[in-house]
């Protein structure tokens, strides 16, 4: 009986290997593995940060770096392209912190579904389409002088309706108009449910 069990395991391992491993990955790294120019760029934020964690991500084509920390009692993450350019800064916020007009538009979109439940909301300060240098973007973020920054809202929300059922990631612009949506993939619950 024991030999049968192990034979099944080995067969399963072989099948798993034949199917191959996805090339996308995301992993924790040490600060020394972050390019020096990236650390230098983000040092003004790191000075006030705690619980700092460093990650490397690969989406199948491009590599990027992400630094997560608690900053001024809020969870933030700063993401960079491989060449050291700033991608964006994201800050965890509550729904009430969104401006009235944008909040109204987002609420109107969510209420078009039969049911919704917001799990996580981030304000994203994008460095793309910016005339300022990355250093200026970071300085304006620290000073919360965000008028000249491209602001977006990234939300993870459970949705029911419009042929959708489950967790989705929604991206809104600064006026609350939907830019993008995608289903969130969660790891299988088989080891905690059965």
């Amino acid at each position: 009986m024991t030999l049968v069990f192990f034979a099944i395991i080995l067969a399963g391992l072989q099948i798993g290997h034949a199917q191959g491993v996805k090339k996308e990955y995301e992993k924790s790294i040490k600060a020394e593995e972050i390019p020096a120019e990236v650390l230098e760029l983000v040092s003004p934020i790191l000075e006030e940060g705690s619980g700092i964690e460093y990650f490397e991500e690969f989406n199948g084509q491009d590599r990027s770096f992400e630094i997560k920390m608690e900053w001024r009692e809020k969870q933030i993450s700063v993401e960079f392209y491989e060449d050291g350019r700033l991608m964006d800064i994201e800050r965890l916020i509550s729904f009430d912190e969104i401006g009235e007009d944008a909040r109204g538009n987002i609420q109107k979109y969510l209420e078009s579904y039969a049911r919704y439940k917001i799990i996580r909301l981030q304000r994203q300060y994008s460095a793309e389409d910016q005339d300022e240098e990355d250093e200026e973007v970071i300085e304006e973020f620290i000073e919360q002088d965000i008028e000249d920054l491209t602001v977006r809202y990234e939300m993870v929300v459970y949705l029911k309706g419009h042929d959708r059922y489950g967790p989705y990631e929604l991206l809104f612009d600064d006026e609350g108009a939907l830019i993008n949506s995608q289903e969130v993939e969660r790891r299988s619950p088989d080891n905690v449910l059965y």
């Binding site: 491993v21 990955y25 995301e26 992993k27 924790s28 990650f55 080891n191 905690v192």
Partner: peptide
Amino acid sequence: LSYDFPLEGQQLDPGEAYMILS
């Protein structure tokens, strides 16, 4: 009550390990 988390990064990618407590 179960609590599990990946040991590498914020996502459990193929080839990675995780810890589970219950």
